[in-house]
Design a protein around this nucleic acid. Structure first.
Length: 606
RNA sequence: GCCGGUGUGGCUCAAUGGUAGAGCAGCGCAUUCGUAAUGCGCAGGUUAGCGGUUCGAGUCCGCUCGCCGGCUCCA
């Protein structure tokens, strides 16, 4: 938008700064709600309106921060009383008034000291605290009516610009995200430039709930969760079919890429975990037990086990890189409040692998893992986000080691031209990592694949191989997952497909529906043939109408239904119904089998 | 772990402090049916658990546990 239209809410200057309408000089273009930056301004402005409403209703409330987020905005308040849903309605009502009043957002530039004085007078202790950390001598304030906030801006010209909004939820949030700080009340909301868009958003959110893996997992009889094992999921026969179909492919692809499979015990002596550094850095997340008076730990990671295998033999440089994959069941004591269906659990199966290699092989191996992860994610049309996490505070190893490891990861990402974000201080305690994040049906991001480079563990365990020169050399170790946790990945898969898995993953691929009792024998014959072709087939011979059987199969999201009545028996054919599409016509058994096999082989995603 | 909410048959939900009920699913019987729900019947609950208030608690209060939405933390 180069011309200032009536939808314009802010502007971008030629040197790339975002400014208010009215402040603009040398404008490159104007922003509206249609622009990402415009939406952010719109949402941020709505958060100011919400804060104003809260201050009107709760004059004692103290303001913390109120940014725009990916979808919407929030504002944190320190209010003595917990807010209820009724309070939210009152706040919404007040916001409507403020929007009606069409108060202009006024920008003011003041000195930092002056700002501190203003906020101190108003009792806004959090704002004063924020000001203490601002280095610039000048700060900007935004004022609409009686409301004043410390803010960089820009904002929409006036409160009347906000056309439709809704407050979505209240929840607790630590001041500055630190556990030891007081807990504030955070109100989440969203706004749009039309009521229709708001309604569409709310509808989309409602529909997303129907894709929730926790709901579908129960409805499709894939898994269950029980009070008796919080965070420890139970997989049912149908869930295991999906997992095993996935793992079949996983094994084939790993074999193809030169991996070998290993398996290490779930319980290992505490001394091992002390040596690996887990005792020092990861103890709070571990479970412990005692056997014959010796202390053991339930493994939270698979690496020490893999290391013991490595150390069980002398290795030559000719063997490297050694790629050892392990579907390892790990247990981690996660805080009770973070458990979430299959996405966040206390025991999960990592599709782990440890690669032991020579230093010069590092980049190539990282590239290999990135490509493998990409293969799996593309298979399901997942879009994913990549993050590079650097050295955390509580970590082991030297700075040089960390620099080298971090650089290697960066180089591999650059070589493959992968877009990524840097996450400072978020690496593992033994090395930096590249993480792959997938999104669930509500847009929440979950880490799945990870590539962690580790120079520390080989040191701790004195790992070595014999080089070409006949001397001992230290291998570099790489920890990685591709799917991440099988549990989490299944959760994402369920939500991605809303339970309607591609044929190759579907727990039941074909259901045969005999129309009347006299068709059952023939239907069983057909079933046996399909079954012998390793296709997961069931027969619904219960005493119900065809319509009812079809409905049941559709609800269960079975990809193909084969209907058998008098006509089919006579012509030796099957009437085929495709999930969500309906009747697709008559096929001979051979034709059906050929089509099914092709669809399975090609792993068709529709 | 923290903040808030919440917990009634397998599932979805009813029940002014006064006898716990419905639909779906399940089971039985009848029906033998042509592309998303055939009919009738039966069974199923110490209202998450423990304690308290009360003549009387699913309902009010307290504690514990689970779950939901966030925060923090992570695959």
């Amino acid at each position: 938008m180069n011309v200032k239209s009536k939808e314009a809410i802010a502007a971008v200057t030629e040197d790339g700064r975002l400014v208010d309408i009215g402040e603009e000089e040398k404008v490159k273009n104007y922003l509206s709600f249609a622009d990402e930056a415009g939406r952010e301004i719109y949402w941020h402005s709505t958060s100011h309106i919400m804060a104003q409403a809260v201050k009107r209703l709760f004059p004692e409330a103290k303001l913390a921060i109120g940014p725009a987020i990916e979808e919407g905005f929030y504002y944190d308040f320190d209010i003595p009383r917990p807010l209820t849903d009724e309070d939210l309605e009152e706040i919404e009502k007040e916001m409507r008034k403020i929007i009606q009043e069409d108060l202009p957002f006024r920008r003011k530039e003041v000195s930092k000291e002056e700002a501190q004085k203003i906020f101190a007078e108003r009792g806004e202790t959090y704002k004063v605290e924020i000001l203490e950390e601002i280095e610039e001598s000048k700060v900007t304030l935004y004022e609409q009516g009686e409301f004043l906030d410390l803010c960089r801006g820009p904002h929409v010209p006036s409160t009347g610009y906000i056309k439709a909004f809704k407050l979505l939820s209240v929840s607790g949030a630590y001041w500055r995200g630190r556990e030891d700080n007081p807990m504030l009340q955070r109100i989440y909301g969203i706004s749009f430039d039309s009521e229709e868009k708001l309604q569409e958003f709310l509808k989309r959110r409602e529909e997303a709930k129907r894709r929730d893996h926790r709901r579908l997992g129960r409805e499709l009889d894939l898994f269950s969760l029980h009070e008796e094992g919080p965070g420890f999921p139970f997989f049912h026969p149908r869930g295991m079919v999906v997992i095993n179909a996935l793992l079949d492919l996983w094994r084939r692809e790993h074999l193809k890429r030169g991996y070998q499979e290993v398996k290490t015990p779930m319980i290992l002596e505490r001394a091992l975990w002390e040596q690996s550094g887990h005792w020092e850095h990861y103890r709070d997340n571990m479970y412990f037990t005692k056997i014959d008076d010796r202390d053991f730990a339930i493994k939270p990671m698979n690496c020490p086990g893999g290391i013991l295998i490595f150390k069980s033999q002398l290795h030559s440089y000719r063997e490297l890189p050694l790629r050892w994959a392990e579907l390892g069941l790990v247990h981690r004591h996660e805080l009770s409040g973070v458990l979430h269906g299959l996405m966040r659990v206390r025991c999960f199966t990592q599709d782990d692998a440890h690669i032991f290699m020579e230093p010069h092989q590092v980049k190539q191996e990282i590239i290999g893992v990135i490509e493998l992860a990409d293969y799996f994610y593309r298979l399901f049309d997942f879009t994913y986000e990549v993050e590079l996490s650097t050295r955390p505070e509580n970590s082991m190893g030297s700075d040089e080691m960390w620099d080298l490891a971090t650089r290697s990861l960066e180089e591999a990402l650059r070589e493959l031209e992968v877009d990524y974000r840097v996450n400072p201080g978020e690496g593992a305690f033994y090395g930096p990592k590249i993480d792959f994040h997938l999104r669930d049906c509500l847009g929440r991001r979950w880490q799945c694949g990870t590539i962690q480079l580790d120079f520390a563990m080989p040191e701790k365990f004195d790992l070595y191989y014999i080089g070409e020169d006949g001397n001992r050399h230290r291998p570099v170790m790489l920890h990685r997952t591709v799917l991440g946790s099988i549990e989490r990945f299944l959760g994402i898969l369920i939500e991605q497909f809303a339970g309607a898995f591609p044929l190759w993953l579907a727990p039941v691929q074909v259901v045969i529906l005999p129309i009347a009792e006299r068709h059952i024998d023939y239907a069983r014959e057909i079933k046996d043939v399909i079954f012998s072709e390793e296709i997961r087939v069931e027969i619904n011979d219960e005493n119900a109408t065809l319509g009812a059987k079809i409905r049941k199969a559709e609800v269960e999201k079975v990809p193909y239904l084969a209907i058998i009545g008098d006509r089919e028996m006579e012509n030796r054919t099957l009437s085929i119904r495709k999930r969500k599409k309906g009747d697709i016509g008559s096929f001979t058994l051979d034709e059906l089998l050929k089509n099914l096999k092709r669809e399975i082989e090609e792993k068709v995603v529709d």
